[in-house]
Deep mutational scan, measured.
Amino acid sequence: KRCPSCQAPIEKNEGCLHMTCAKCNHGFCWRCLKSWKPNHKD
């Protein structure tokens, strides 16, 4: 998949759905690609 903010390629190996892009530091949900918020729901 690609970061929804900067389009950098992102690879997920394991862990939770909260992802942070290493290039732009954007926090997002791996499943729905929406911005991550404390009360995030898919």
Score class of each variant (00 low, 15 high):
residue 1 K to Y: 12
residue 20 T to H: 08
residue 31 R to G: 13
residue 19 M to Y: 00
residue 20 T to K: 12
residue 42 D to A: 09
residue 11 E to F: 13
residue 35 S to D: 11
residue 4 P to S: 08
residue 18 H to T: 03
residue 27 G to Q: 15
residue 26 H to I: 04
residue 34 K to N: 02
residue 26 H to E: 09
residue 2 R to P: 07
residue 29 C to T: 00
residue 32 C to S: 01
residue 18 H to Q: 13
residue 3 C to Q: 00
residue 39 N to P: 12
residue 24 C to K: 04
residue 29 C to Q: 02
residue 32 C to G: 01
residue 34 K to E: 12
residue 25 N to A: 08
residue 34 K to Q: 08
residue 23 K to W: 01
residue 29 C to N: 01
residue 3 C to K: 01
residue 6 C to I: 03
residue 3 C to G: 02
residue 8 A to M: 08
residue 9 P to N: 10
residue 25 N to W: 03
residue 5 S to P: 04
residue 22 A to F: 00
residue 2 R to N: 15
residue 19 M to W: 06
residue 38 P to Q: 08
residue 36 W to M: 09
residue 31 R to K: 15
residue 6 C to A: 10
residue 1 K to M: 08
residue 32 C to Y: 01
residue 34 K to M: 04
residue 16 C to I: 15
residue 30 W to A: 14
residue 38 P to F: 12
residue 38 P to H: 00
residue 8 A to C: 07
residue 1 K to S: 01
residue 14 E to Y: 12
residue 23 K to M: 05
residue 28 F to Y: 10
residue 38 P to G: 10
residue 14 E to N: 06
residue 34 K to H: 06
residue 2 R to H: 13
residue 24 C to R: 01
residue 4 P to C: 14
residue 18 H to A: 08
residue 33 L to R: 03
residue 16 C to W: 08
residue 29 C to W: 00
residue 25 N to I: 08
residue 37 K to M: 06
residue 8 A to S: 10
residue 30 W to P: 13
residue 1 K to N: 13
residue 20 T to W: 07
residue 30 W to H: 10
residue 14 E to D: 09
residue 39 N to S: 11
residue 14 E to A: 11
residue 25 N to R: 06
residue 16 C to G: 15
residue 21 C to H: 00
residue 19 M to V: 14
residue 10 I to A: 07
residue 24 C to T: 01
residue 42 D to F: 01
residue 7 Q to A: 10
residue 9 P to A: 07
residue 41 K to P: 15
residue 7 Q to K: 15
residue 31 R to M: 10
residue 18 H to V: 04
residue 40 H to I: 01
residue 42 D to I: 01
residue 7 Q to M: 13
residue 9 P to H: 05
residue 40 H to G: 09
residue 16 C to P: 13
residue 23 K to I: 03
residue 35 S to Y: 03
residue 13 N to F: 04
residue 31 R to Q: 14
residue 38 P to K: 04
residue 32 C to H: 00
residue 20 T to Q: 10
residue 6 C to E: 05
residue 4 P to H: 11
residue 39 N to D: 14
residue 35 S to E: 14
residue 32 C to F: 01
residue 26 H to W: 02
residue 20 T to A: 07
residue 11 E to H: 08
residue 14 E to T: 09
residue 2 R to S: 12
residue 19 M to D: 12
residue 6 C to N: 12
residue 26 H to R: 07
residue 18 H to R: 11
residue 35 S to A: 12
residue 2 R to I: 15
residue 9 P to L: 04
residue 5 S to M: 15
residue 33 L to Y: 02
residue 9 P to Q: 11
residue 18 H to M: 13
residue 7 Q to C: 11
residue 19 M to H: 03
residue 41 K to D: 00
residue 20 T to L: 09
residue 11 E to G: 04
residue 40 H to Y: 03
residue 34 K to T: 05
residue 31 R to S: 10
residue 3 C to H: 06
residue 31 R to F: 06
residue 10 I to P: 02
residue 5 S to L: 08
residue 30 W to I: 06
residue 25 N to T: 09
residue 10 I to K: 01
residue 32 C to L: 00
residue 21 C to G: 02
residue 22 A to Q: 00
residue 25 N to L: 06
residue 3 C to M: 08
residue 29 C to R: 00
residue 25 N to D: 13
residue 20 T to D: 07
residue 17 L to I: 05
residue 24 C to A: 03
residue 23 K to A: 09
residue 22 A to H: 04
residue 28 F to L: 06
residue 8 A to H: 14
residue 36 W to N: 04
residue 23 K to R: 11
residue 23 K to H: 06
residue 10 I to C: 08
residue 33 L to W: 02
residue 12 K to E: 10
residue 17 L to M: 10
residue 29 C to Y: 00
residue 25 N to C: 13
residue 5 S to Y: 05
residue 11 E to D: 08
residue 12 K to M: 06
residue 16 C to M: 14
residue 26 H to N: 05
residue 22 A to E: 12
residue 26 H to T: 06
residue 34 K to A: 03
residue 15 G to P: 06
residue 3 C to F: 03
residue 37 K to F: 07
residue 25 N to K: 09
residue 33 L to D: 06
residue 26 H to D: 12
residue 20 T to G: 05
residue 21 C to R: 00
residue 27 G to C: 12
residue 21 C to N: 03
residue 37 K to Y: 10
residue 35 S to K: 08
residue 4 P to A: 13
residue 21 C to L: 01
residue 13 N to S: 09
residue 35 S to N: 09
residue 4 P to W: 08
residue 37 K to R: 08
residue 30 W to E: 11
residue 7 Q to T: 09
residue 12 K to H: 08
residue 13 N to R: 10
residue 28 F to I: 04
residue 38 P to L: 07
residue 1 K to Q: 01
residue 1 K to W: 00
residue 1 K to A: 00
residue 2 R to Q: 15
residue 3 C to Y: 04
residue 38 P to C: 01
residue 1 K to G: 00
residue 4 P to Q: 04
residue 33 L to C: 03
residue 11 E to R: 02
residue 34 K to D: 04
residue 19 M to T: 14
residue 35 S to F: 14
residue 13 N to I: 15
residue 9 P to S: 04
residue 26 H to C: 01
residue 26 H to Q: 07
residue 19 M to F: 02
residue 41 K to I: 02
residue 12 K to I: 02
residue 33 L to A: 05
residue 16 C to T: 15
residue 27 G to R: 13
residue 2 R to Y: 14
residue 33 L to K: 07
residue 21 C to Y: 03
residue 22 A to Y: 12
residue 39 N to A: 11
residue 7 Q to R: 14
residue 28 F to G: 12
residue 10 I to S: 06
residue 30 W to L: 08
residue 20 T to S: 05
residue 10 I to E: 12
residue 42 D to E: 09
residue 7 Q to N: 00
residue 19 M to E: 07
residue 25 N to F: 06
residue 13 N to L: 14
residue 40 H to C: 06
residue 3 C to T: 03
residue 22 A to D: 14
residue 26 H to L: 03
residue 18 H to F: 10
residue 27 G to A: 14
residue 42 D to P: 08
residue 4 P to K: 00
residue 35 S to Q: 12
residue 19 M to S: 11
residue 13 N to Y: 06
residue 18 H to P: 03
residue 40 H to E: 14
residue 39 N to H: 04
residue 9 P to R: 10
residue 31 R to Y: 14
residue 3 C to A: 00
residue 3 C to V: 04
residue 42 D to N: 15
residue 34 K to G: 07
residue 35 S to G: 08
residue 9 P to M: 12
residue 40 H to F: 09
residue 14 E to P: 11
residue 7 Q to W: 09
residue 16 C to N: 14
residue 38 P to V: 07
residue 23 K to F: 11
residue 3 C to D: 11
residue 30 W to Q: 10
residue 28 F to P: 12
residue 4 P to E: 00
residue 1 K to F: 01
residue 12 K to Y: 08
residue 36 W to H: 11
residue 18 H to W: 05
residue 13 N to E: 11
residue 4 P to Y: 14
residue 34 K to S: 07
residue 4 P to F: 15
residue 31 R to T: 12
residue 6 C to R: 01
residue 2 R to V: 07
residue 35 S to R: 04
residue 42 D to C: 14
residue 37 K to I: 10
residue 13 N to D: 07
residue 40 H to T: 04
residue 1 K to D: 05
residue 39 N to M: 08
residue 32 C to V: 00
residue 11 E to K: 05
residue 30 W to V: 10
residue 5 S to R: 15
residue 5 S to E: 15
residue 23 K to L: 05
residue 10 I to Q: 06
residue 24 C to G: 05
residue 27 G to W: 11
residue 27 G to E: 15
residue 12 K to S: 09
residue 8 A to T: 10
residue 29 C to E: 03
residue 29 C to H: 02
residue 6 C to W: 01
residue 32 C to D: 07
residue 31 R to E: 13
residue 1 K to I: 13
residue 37 K to W: 07
residue 34 K to I: 02
residue 15 G to V: 03
residue 14 E to F: 02
residue 41 K to R: 08
residue 25 N to P: 04
residue 13 N to T: 14
residue 21 C to I: 00
residue 34 K to V: 01
residue 21 C to E: 08
residue 37 K to V: 12
residue 30 W to R: 06
residue 11 E to N: 00
residue 41 K to Q: 14
residue 2 R to F: 10
residue 25 N to H: 03
residue 21 C to D: 06
residue 5 S to V: 14
residue 16 C to Y: 10
residue 37 K to L: 08
residue 18 H to L: 09
residue 17 L to D: 11
residue 30 W to Y: 00
residue 5 S to K: 15
residue 27 G to Y: 03
residue 8 A to R: 08
residue 4 P to L: 12
residue 13 N to M: 11
residue 33 L to F: 03
residue 41 K to C: 15
residue 14 E to V: 04
residue 3 C to E: 02
residue 15 G to C: 09
residue 11 E to Q: 03
residue 4 P to D: 00
residue 16 C to H: 13
residue 6 C to T: 04
residue 25 N to M: 10
residue 3 C to I: 15
residue 26 H to M: 09
residue 41 K to V: 14
residue 36 W to V: 14
residue 20 T to R: 08
residue 17 L to V: 11
residue 8 A to P: 02
residue 26 H to A: 11
residue 22 A to G: 06
residue 9 P to F: 04
residue 20 T to V: 15
residue 31 R to L: 13
residue 24 C to D: 10
residue 37 K to P: 10
residue 34 K to Y: 00
residue 21 C to S: 05
residue 14 E to I: 05
residue 15 G to W: 07
residue 17 L to Y: 15
residue 11 E to W: 10
residue 2 R to L: 14
residue 4 P to N: 00
residue 2 R to T: 13
residue 16 C to A: 15
residue 14 E to L: 03
residue 40 H to M: 13
residue 28 F to C: 07
residue 22 A to W: 09
residue 36 W to L: 14
residue 37 K to T: 13
residue 25 N to V: 06
residue 18 H to I: 08
residue 37 K to G: 13
residue 30 W to K: 04
residue 7 Q to P: 07
residue 20 T to P: 09
residue 7 Q to H: 05
residue 23 K to E: 07
residue 4 P to T: 11
residue 18 H to Y: 02
residue 18 H to K: 15
residue 15 G to D: 06
residue 41 K to H: 14
residue 29 C to P: 00
residue 28 F to V: 06
residue 2 R to M: 15
residue 2 R to G: 14
residue 33 L to N: 03
residue 22 A to R: 06
residue 33 L to H: 05
residue 28 F to K: 05
